[in-house]
Simulated assay, not measured.
Amino acid sequence: MPLQELTSRTAVIEAVGRCDIIGPETLVHDSKVGPVRDYLLEFEGKLYHAKTVADVAYGIQHPDRPPLPADAFKGDAAVRSLERLDFTIAATAKLWPPDLGVEYPNRTIIRNAFGGNWVPGIAKFPGDDIVNVFSDEDGPYADEAPDPVKPFEYRGEGRAGDQQLTRGNKMLDQARQERRAVRYWYRPAGGTFKFVTWVAILSRAQVWSPDDTKKLRLEYTFQVAAVPSPEPNTWPSQVTDLIDDGEIEDTPPPRPVPQNAVSKQLPKTYLEYVKPFGDTPKACRKGRGPNKGNRNLYPRSRRARDAVLVRAADQCENDGCTGMPADTTPSGAAILEVDHVDDLALNGPDHPGVMIALCPNCHAAKTRGRTRAALKRHFRARAAKLHQQAMQAHQG
Protein backbone atom coordinates (compact mmCIF):
# COMPACT_ATOMS: atom_id res chain seq x y z
CA MET A 1 0.00 0.00 0.00
CA PRO A 2 1.48 3.40 -1.00
CA LEU A 3 0.65 5.13 2.30
CA GLN A 4 2.68 2.53 4.16
CA GLU A 5 5.66 4.26 2.56
CA LEU A 6 4.85 7.49 4.39
CA THR A 7 7.50 7.11 7.08
CA SER A 8 8.77 10.66 7.65
CA ARG A 9 7.42 12.55 10.63
CA THR A 10 9.27 15.63 9.38
CA ALA A 11 7.39 15.45 6.07
CA VAL A 12 4.09 15.33 7.95
CA ILE A 13 4.98 18.38 10.05
CA GLU A 14 5.95 20.28 6.89
CA ALA A 15 2.66 19.20 5.29
CA VAL A 16 0.71 20.52 8.25
CA GLY A 17 2.14 23.97 7.54
CA ARG A 18 0.73 23.83 4.02
CA CYS A 19 -2.78 22.68 4.99
CA ASP A 20 -5.83 24.58 6.15
CA ILE A 21 -6.85 24.59 9.78
CA ILE A 22 -10.20 22.87 10.32
CA GLY A 23 -12.88 24.28 12.62
CA PRO A 24 -16.44 23.23 13.54
CA GLU A 25 -17.94 25.32 10.72
CA THR A 26 -15.44 24.17 8.08
CA LEU A 27 -16.58 21.86 5.33
CA VAL A 28 -14.04 21.27 2.61
CA HIS A 29 -14.47 18.55 0.00
CA ASP A 30 -11.46 17.39 -1.95
CA SER A 31 -12.13 15.27 -5.05
CA LYS A 32 -9.29 12.93 -4.12
CA VAL A 33 -9.32 12.60 -0.36
CA GLY A 34 -13.03 13.17 0.22
CA PRO A 35 -14.95 15.12 2.87
CA VAL A 36 -13.11 16.80 5.71
CA ARG A 37 -15.37 15.65 8.48
CA ASP A 38 -14.31 12.13 9.36
CA TYR A 39 -10.90 11.92 11.06
CA LEU A 40 -8.74 14.93 11.87
CA LEU A 41 -5.07 15.31 12.73
CA GLU A 42 -4.53 17.22 15.99
CA PHE A 43 -1.21 19.07 16.10
CA GLU A 44 -0.11 21.85 18.45
CA GLY A 45 -3.70 22.57 19.48
CA LYS A 46 -5.00 22.84 15.92
CA LEU A 47 -6.94 20.45 13.70
CA TYR A 48 -6.23 19.42 10.12
CA HIS A 49 -7.83 17.07 7.62
CA ALA A 50 -5.94 13.82 8.18
CA LYS A 51 -6.24 12.56 4.60
CA THR A 52 -5.14 15.89 3.11
CA VAL A 53 -2.09 16.03 5.38
CA ALA A 54 -1.15 12.44 4.51
CA ASP A 55 -1.50 13.20 0.80
CA VAL A 56 0.70 16.31 0.98
CA ALA A 57 3.25 14.61 3.26
CA TYR A 58 3.61 11.69 0.87
CA GLY A 59 4.40 14.13 -1.95
CA ILE A 60 7.00 15.90 0.23
CA GLN A 61 8.71 12.64 1.18
CA HIS A 62 8.55 11.20 -2.34
CA PRO A 63 8.75 14.19 -4.73
CA ASP A 64 9.83 12.01 -7.64
CA ARG A 65 6.70 9.88 -7.53
CA PRO A 66 3.32 10.61 -9.15
CA PRO A 67 0.41 11.78 -6.93
CA LEU A 68 -1.41 9.08 -5.03
CA PRO A 69 -4.67 7.79 -6.55
CA ALA A 70 -7.94 8.32 -4.71
CA ASP A 71 -8.24 4.64 -3.73
CA ALA A 72 -5.04 4.95 -1.68
CA PHE A 73 -7.11 6.85 0.88
CA LYS A 74 -9.94 4.35 1.25
CA GLY A 75 -11.04 3.49 4.75
CA ASP A 76 -8.69 4.65 7.49
CA ALA A 77 -5.41 4.17 5.58
CA ALA A 78 -4.33 7.78 6.18
CA VAL A 79 -5.22 7.55 9.86
CA ARG A 80 -3.13 4.40 10.34
CA SER A 81 -0.15 5.98 8.57
CA LEU A 82 -0.25 9.08 10.78
CA GLU A 83 -0.76 7.09 13.97
CA ARG A 84 2.31 4.98 13.13
CA LEU A 85 4.27 8.24 13.23
CA ASP A 86 2.87 9.05 16.70
CA PHE A 87 0.46 11.78 15.61
CA THR A 88 -2.82 12.29 17.46
CA ILE A 89 -6.02 11.58 15.54
CA ALA A 90 -9.43 12.97 16.57
CA ALA A 91 -12.84 11.92 15.26
CA THR A 92 -15.21 14.60 13.99
CA ALA A 93 -18.23 13.05 15.72
CA LYS A 94 -16.36 13.25 19.04
CA LEU A 95 -15.23 16.84 18.54
CA TRP A 96 -18.44 18.24 17.04
CA PRO A 97 -21.26 15.72 17.53
CA PRO A 98 -24.57 16.42 15.79
CA ASP A 99 -26.85 18.74 17.73
CA LEU A 100 -30.38 17.65 18.55
CA GLY A 101 -32.65 19.03 15.85
CA VAL A 102 -29.98 19.30 13.15
CA GLU A 103 -31.17 18.45 9.61
CA TYR A 104 -29.39 17.18 6.51
CA PRO A 105 -30.86 16.69 3.01
CA ASN A 106 -29.78 13.05 2.75
CA ARG A 107 -27.53 10.31 4.12
CA THR A 108 -24.68 11.24 1.78
CA ILE A 109 -24.43 14.70 3.35
CA ILE A 110 -24.49 13.13 6.82
CA ARG A 111 -21.62 10.88 5.77
CA ASN A 112 -19.76 13.94 4.44
CA ALA A 113 -20.27 15.62 7.80
CA PHE A 114 -19.30 12.78 10.12
CA GLY A 115 -17.79 10.02 7.99
CA GLY A 116 -18.77 6.38 7.98
CA ASN A 117 -21.13 4.45 5.75
CA TRP A 118 -24.27 6.03 4.30
CA VAL A 119 -26.12 2.74 3.62
CA PRO A 120 -26.91 0.93 6.93
CA GLY A 121 -29.96 1.99 8.92
CA ILE A 122 -28.03 1.42 12.16
CA ALA A 123 -24.49 2.78 12.39
CA LYS A 124 -21.82 4.48 14.47
CA PHE A 125 -19.85 7.43 13.17
CA PRO A 126 -16.07 6.81 12.98
CA GLY A 127 -14.43 7.19 16.38
CA ASP A 128 -17.78 7.60 18.15
CA ASP A 129 -19.34 5.09 20.55
CA ILE A 130 -22.93 6.32 20.13
CA VAL A 131 -25.29 4.32 17.91
CA ASN A 132 -27.38 6.16 15.30
CA VAL A 133 -30.58 4.78 13.80
CA PHE A 134 -32.06 6.16 10.60
CA SER A 135 -35.77 5.84 9.87
CA ASP A 136 -37.05 6.86 6.44
CA GLU A 137 -40.81 7.00 5.83
CA ASP A 138 -40.11 6.30 2.15
CA GLY A 139 -37.77 3.43 3.02
CA PRO A 140 -38.35 -0.35 2.95
CA TYR A 141 -38.97 -0.88 6.69
CA ALA A 142 -42.24 -0.65 8.65
CA ASP A 143 -40.93 1.73 11.33
CA GLU A 144 -43.44 3.74 13.32
CA ALA A 145 -43.14 7.52 13.26
CA PRO A 146 -41.28 8.81 16.34
CA ASP A 147 -43.55 9.72 19.24
CA PRO A 148 -42.38 12.16 21.95
CA VAL A 149 -44.63 10.56 24.57
CA LYS A 150 -45.33 6.90 23.90
CA PRO A 151 -43.00 4.02 23.01
CA PHE A 152 -42.80 3.30 19.30
CA GLU A 153 -41.39 0.63 17.01
CA TYR A 154 -38.14 0.56 15.02
CA ARG A 155 -37.45 -2.37 12.69
CA GLY A 156 -34.03 -4.01 12.55
CA GLU A 157 -31.76 -4.00 9.50
CA GLY A 158 -31.43 -6.71 6.85
CA ARG A 159 -33.61 -6.67 3.74
CA ALA A 160 -33.50 -10.28 2.55
CA GLY A 161 -34.09 -13.45 4.56
CA ASP A 162 -34.54 -13.68 8.33
CA GLN A 163 -32.81 -10.83 10.12
CA GLN A 164 -29.91 -11.86 12.32
CA LEU A 165 -28.75 -10.44 15.65
CA THR A 166 -25.52 -9.16 14.10
CA ARG A 167 -24.00 -5.83 13.09
CA GLY A 168 -26.48 -2.99 13.57
CA ASN A 169 -29.10 -5.17 15.25
CA LYS A 170 -26.48 -6.36 17.73
CA MET A 171 -25.40 -2.76 18.39
CA LEU A 172 -28.99 -1.79 19.22
CA ASP A 173 -29.42 -4.79 21.48
CA GLN A 174 -26.20 -3.95 23.32
CA ALA A 175 -27.49 -0.40 23.82
CA ARG A 176 -30.62 -1.94 25.39
CA GLN A 177 -28.64 -4.15 27.76
CA GLU A 178 -26.23 -1.36 28.72
CA ARG A 179 -28.97 1.30 28.94
CA ARG A 180 -27.18 3.60 26.49
CA ALA A 181 -29.06 6.26 24.55
CA VAL A 182 -29.25 6.14 20.75
CA ARG A 183 -29.56 9.03 18.30
CA TYR A 184 -32.83 8.75 16.35
CA TRP A 185 -32.78 10.26 12.84
CA TYR A 186 -36.06 10.48 10.95
CA ARG A 187 -37.05 11.55 7.46
CA PRO A 188 -40.77 12.05 6.71
CA ALA A 189 -41.99 11.36 3.19
CA GLY A 190 -40.31 13.80 0.83
CA GLY A 191 -38.48 15.54 3.69
CA THR A 192 -34.98 15.72 5.13
CA PHE A 193 -33.18 13.64 7.73
CA LYS A 194 -33.43 15.21 11.19
CA PHE A 195 -31.91 14.17 14.50
CA VAL A 196 -35.31 14.29 16.20
CA THR A 197 -34.66 12.75 19.61
CA TRP A 198 -32.53 10.57 21.83
CA VAL A 199 -34.14 7.19 22.48
CA ALA A 200 -33.77 4.39 25.00
CA ILE A 201 -34.11 0.83 23.71
CA LEU A 202 -36.83 -0.87 25.77
CA SER A 203 -37.10 -4.38 24.35
CA ARG A 204 -36.64 -6.64 21.35
CA ALA A 205 -39.04 -9.05 19.67
CA GLN A 206 -39.53 -10.80 16.33
CA VAL A 207 -42.33 -10.30 13.82
CA TRP A 208 -43.17 -11.69 10.39
CA SER A 209 -42.83 -9.25 7.51
CA PRO A 210 -42.20 -9.46 3.75
CA ASP A 211 -38.65 -8.84 2.55
CA ASP A 212 -37.60 -7.16 -0.71
CA THR A 213 -38.58 -10.30 -2.64
CA LYS A 214 -42.07 -10.30 -1.02
CA LYS A 215 -41.26 -13.49 0.89
CA LEU A 216 -42.20 -13.64 4.57
CA ARG A 217 -39.25 -13.50 6.91
CA LEU A 218 -38.58 -12.74 10.56
CA GLU A 219 -37.70 -9.14 11.36
CA TYR A 220 -36.50 -7.70 14.63
CA THR A 221 -38.70 -5.01 16.11
CA PHE A 222 -37.19 -2.81 18.79
CA GLN A 223 -39.48 -0.92 21.14
CA VAL A 224 -37.92 2.48 21.82
CA ALA A 225 -38.92 5.56 23.79
CA ALA A 226 -37.86 9.20 23.49
CA VAL A 227 -35.63 10.47 26.32
CA PRO A 228 -34.44 14.04 27.00
CA SER A 229 -30.69 13.38 26.81
CA PRO A 230 -28.06 10.63 26.59
CA GLU A 231 -27.61 10.74 30.36
CA PRO A 232 -29.68 7.94 31.99
CA ASN A 233 -30.13 9.97 35.18
CA THR A 234 -32.32 12.37 33.16
CA TRP A 235 -34.65 9.67 31.85
CA PRO A 236 -38.17 9.63 33.34
CA SER A 237 -39.14 6.67 35.47
CA GLN A 238 -41.96 5.73 33.08
CA VAL A 239 -39.21 4.94 30.56
CA THR A 240 -36.61 3.34 32.83
CA ASP A 241 -39.25 1.07 34.37
CA LEU A 242 -39.99 -0.34 30.91
CA ILE A 243 -36.42 -1.22 29.93
CA ASP A 244 -35.73 -4.93 29.80
CA ASP A 245 -31.94 -5.01 30.05
CA GLY A 246 -31.61 -8.78 30.53
CA GLU A 247 -31.00 -11.56 28.07
CA ILE A 248 -33.88 -12.05 25.63
CA GLU A 249 -34.48 -15.39 23.99
CA ASP A 250 -35.97 -15.05 20.53
CA THR A 251 -39.44 -16.62 20.35
CA PRO A 252 -40.84 -16.20 16.82
CA PRO A 253 -44.63 -15.71 16.64
CA PRO A 254 -46.74 -18.18 14.62
CA ARG A 255 -46.22 -17.82 10.91
CA PRO A 256 -49.13 -15.89 9.31
CA VAL A 257 -51.61 -17.71 7.09
CA PRO A 258 -50.54 -17.28 3.42
CA GLN A 259 -52.58 -14.84 1.36
CA ASN A 260 -53.58 -17.63 -1.03
CA ALA A 261 -54.89 -19.91 1.71
CA VAL A 262 -58.41 -21.33 1.63
CA SER A 263 -60.91 -18.57 2.37
CA LYS A 264 -62.28 -20.25 5.49
CA GLN A 265 -58.83 -19.92 7.05
CA LEU A 266 -58.80 -16.17 6.55
CA PRO A 267 -60.80 -14.02 8.98
CA LYS A 268 -63.13 -11.73 7.04
CA THR A 269 -65.54 -10.16 9.50
CA TYR A 270 -64.96 -8.20 12.69
CA LEU A 271 -66.34 -11.12 14.70
CA GLU A 272 -63.88 -13.55 13.09
CA TYR A 273 -60.98 -11.22 13.83
CA VAL A 274 -62.02 -10.70 17.47
CA LYS A 275 -62.87 -14.32 18.32
CA PRO A 276 -59.32 -15.33 19.43
CA PHE A 277 -59.21 -12.39 21.87
CA GLY A 278 -62.53 -13.00 23.61
CA ASP A 279 -65.58 -10.73 23.61
CA THR A 280 -64.26 -8.19 26.09
CA PRO A 281 -60.86 -6.67 26.90
CA LYS A 282 -60.99 -8.32 30.32
CA ALA A 283 -60.86 -11.68 28.59
CA CYS A 284 -57.64 -10.67 26.84
CA ARG A 285 -54.24 -10.87 28.48
CA LYS A 286 -52.91 -7.38 29.07
CA GLY A 287 -49.77 -6.03 27.51
CA ARG A 288 -46.74 -7.46 29.26
CA GLY A 289 -44.96 -5.20 31.68
CA PRO A 290 -41.28 -4.95 32.57
CA ASN A 291 -41.06 -8.38 34.17
CA LYS A 292 -37.55 -9.82 33.90
CA GLY A 293 -39.00 -13.32 33.74
CA ASN A 294 -41.13 -12.43 30.73
CA ARG A 295 -39.20 -11.58 27.58
CA ASN A 296 -40.17 -9.82 24.33
CA LEU A 297 -42.18 -7.29 26.28
CA TYR A 298 -44.43 -5.39 23.91
CA PRO A 299 -45.32 -7.34 20.76
CA ARG A 300 -48.42 -5.87 19.13
CA SER A 301 -51.07 -8.08 17.60
CA ARG A 302 -51.47 -7.48 13.87
CA ARG A 303 -54.81 -9.30 14.09
CA ALA A 304 -56.13 -6.82 16.67
CA ARG A 305 -55.03 -3.91 14.52
CA ASP A 306 -56.67 -5.40 11.43
CA ALA A 307 -59.90 -5.97 13.37
CA VAL A 308 -60.10 -2.27 14.23
CA LEU A 309 -59.49 -1.27 10.61
CA VAL A 310 -62.27 -3.64 9.45
CA ARG A 311 -64.61 -2.09 12.01
CA ALA A 312 -63.66 1.46 10.98
CA ALA A 313 -64.45 0.82 7.31
CA ASP A 314 -62.13 3.60 6.11
CA GLN A 315 -63.57 6.22 8.50
CA CYS A 316 -62.01 7.95 11.52
CA GLU A 317 -63.77 6.52 14.59
CA ASN A 318 -63.63 9.83 16.46
CA ASP A 319 -67.22 11.08 16.36
CA GLY A 320 -65.82 14.60 16.76
CA CYS A 321 -63.43 14.36 13.81
CA THR A 322 -63.18 17.60 11.87
CA GLY A 323 -62.11 15.99 8.60
CA MET A 324 -60.23 13.04 7.14
CA PRO A 325 -57.16 13.62 4.93
CA ALA A 326 -58.08 13.99 1.26
CA ASP A 327 -55.20 11.73 0.28
CA THR A 328 -55.10 7.93 0.62
CA THR A 329 -52.50 5.22 1.07
CA PRO A 330 -50.86 3.83 -2.11
CA SER A 331 -53.40 0.96 -2.01
CA GLY A 332 -56.31 3.43 -1.96
CA ALA A 333 -57.27 2.89 1.68
CA ALA A 334 -58.01 5.74 4.08
CA ILE A 335 -55.06 7.05 6.08
CA LEU A 336 -55.83 5.77 9.57
CA GLU A 337 -53.68 5.05 12.63
CA VAL A 338 -54.79 2.40 15.13
CA ASP A 339 -54.31 3.62 18.70
CA HIS A 340 -54.32 1.69 21.98
CA VAL A 341 -56.44 4.00 24.15
CA ASP A 342 -54.64 2.61 27.20
CA ASP A 343 -51.00 2.36 26.17
CA LEU A 344 -49.93 -1.21 25.48
CA ALA A 345 -46.47 -0.46 26.85
CA LEU A 346 -48.10 0.71 30.09
CA ASN A 347 -49.95 -2.60 30.55
CA GLY A 348 -53.04 -1.73 28.50
CA PRO A 349 -54.94 -4.64 26.87
CA ASP A 350 -54.11 -5.56 23.28
CA HIS A 351 -57.81 -5.95 22.39
CA PRO A 352 -59.95 -4.23 19.71
CA GLY A 353 -62.43 -3.21 22.40
CA VAL A 354 -59.93 -0.67 23.74
CA MET A 355 -58.39 0.29 20.40
CA ILE A 356 -59.62 2.95 18.00
CA ALA A 357 -58.86 3.95 14.40
CA LEU A 358 -58.02 7.64 14.11
CA CYS A 359 -57.04 9.96 11.30
CA PRO A 360 -53.58 11.56 11.76
CA ASN A 361 -55.02 14.82 13.16
CA CYS A 362 -57.19 13.11 15.76
CA HIS A 363 -54.34 10.76 16.70
CA ALA A 364 -51.99 13.73 17.23
CA ALA A 365 -54.61 15.51 19.37
CA LYS A 366 -55.07 12.38 21.52
CA THR A 367 -51.31 11.99 21.94
CA ARG A 368 -50.05 15.55 22.28
CA GLY A 369 -53.07 17.87 22.43
CA ARG A 370 -54.07 20.15 25.29
CA THR A 371 -57.26 18.13 25.86
CA ARG A 372 -55.61 14.72 25.50
CA ALA A 373 -56.72 13.53 28.95
CA ALA A 374 -60.38 14.22 28.13
CA LEU A 375 -59.97 12.69 24.67
CA LYS A 376 -58.51 9.55 26.19
CA ARG A 377 -61.57 9.13 28.44
CA HIS A 378 -63.90 9.77 25.52
CA PHE A 379 -62.08 7.37 23.19
CA ARG A 380 -62.13 4.63 25.84
CA ALA A 381 -65.93 4.84 25.96
CA ARG A 382 -66.17 5.32 22.20
CA ALA A 383 -64.04 2.23 21.44
CA ALA A 384 -66.11 0.10 23.82
CA LYS A 385 -69.34 1.28 22.18
CA LEU A 386 -68.10 0.65 18.64
CA HIS A 387 -66.84 -2.78 19.67
CA GLN A 388 -70.20 -3.78 21.14
CA GLN A 389 -72.09 -2.47 18.13
CA ALA A 390 -69.88 -4.40 15.73
CA MET A 391 -70.17 -7.60 17.77
CA GLN A 392 -73.97 -7.34 17.93
CA ALA A 393 -74.24 -6.62 14.22
CA HIS A 394 -72.29 -9.76 13.30
CA GLN A 395 -74.06 -11.93 15.89
CA GLY A 396 -77.42 -11.05 14.39
Rank of each mutant, 00 (worst) to 15 (best):
residue 161 G to A: 08
residue 386 L to P: 00
residue 390 A to Y: 01
residue 69 P to A: 05
residue 144 E to N: 14
residue 52 T to A: 15
residue 130 I to S: 04
residue 319 D to K: 15
residue 369 G to P: 11
residue 307 A to T: 05
residue 148 P to F: 11
residue 132 N to H: 14
residue 127 G to M: 00
residue 43 F to P: 05
residue 165 L to S: 04
residue 232 P to L: 00
residue 182 V to T: 01
residue 37 R to G: 13
residue 372 R to G: 01
residue 195 F to L: 12
residue 98 P to T: 04
residue 85 L to M: 08
residue 98 P to G: 05
residue 159 R to M: 14
residue 302 R to Q: 06
residue 364 A to Y: 11
residue 282 K to M: 10
residue 189 A to P: 00
residue 379 F to R: 00
residue 363 H to L: 02
residue 178 E to R: 14
residue 220 Y to Q: 10
residue 183 R to H: 04
residue 94 K to S: 15
residue 228 P to L: 07
residue 148 P to K: 08
residue 356 I to G: 01
residue 276 P to M: 03
residue 79 V to H: 09
residue 159 R to Q: 15
residue 301 S to I: 02
residue 109 I to N: 04
residue 34 G to M: 07
residue 30 D to I: 00
residue 76 D to V: 13
residue 148 P to S: 11
residue 213 T to I: 12
residue 20 D to E: 12
residue 248 I to N: 06
residue 380 R to W: 06
residue 188 P to D: 01
residue 394 H to M: 13
residue 336 L to D: 01
residue 143 D to E: 03
residue 23 G to R: 06
residue 177 Q to D: 00
residue 342 D to V: 10
residue 369 G to I: 10
residue 318 N to T: 04
residue 41 L to S: 05
residue 335 I to A: 05
residue 285 R to V: 08
residue 145 A to I: 04
residue 61 Q to F: 07
residue 306 D to Q: 13
residue 7 T to R: 15
residue 310 V to F: 11
residue 130 I to K: 07
residue 290 P to K: 12
residue 229 S to K: 09
residue 57 A to E: 06
residue 23 G to E: 02
residue 54 A to K: 03
residue 192 T to A: 07
residue 226 A to L: 03
residue 234 T to G: 07
residue 181 A to N: 11
residue 216 L to K: 11
residue 320 G to S: 09
residue 330 P to L: 05
residue 267 P to C: 05
residue 88 T to E: 12
residue 220 Y to C: 09
residue 23 G to L: 02
residue 102 V to D: 00
residue 45 G to V: 12
residue 177 Q to F: 01
residue 223 Q to K: 14
residue 209 S to K: 03
residue 89 I to D: 02
residue 12 V to P: 08
residue 9 R to G: 15
residue 181 A to D: 04
residue 80 R to I: 10
residue 114 F to K: 06
residue 194 K to Y: 06
residue 183 R to L: 02
residue 25 E to F: 15
residue 306 D to P: 09
residue 88 T to P: 09
residue 363 H to M: 00
residue 129 D to G: 15
residue 390 A to M: 01
residue 123 A to P: 11
residue 8 S to I: 06
residue 327 D to K: 15
residue 300 R to L: 10
residue 299 P to C: 02
residue 113 A to H: 08
residue 361 N to K: 13
residue 211 D to R: 12
residue 250 D to V: 05
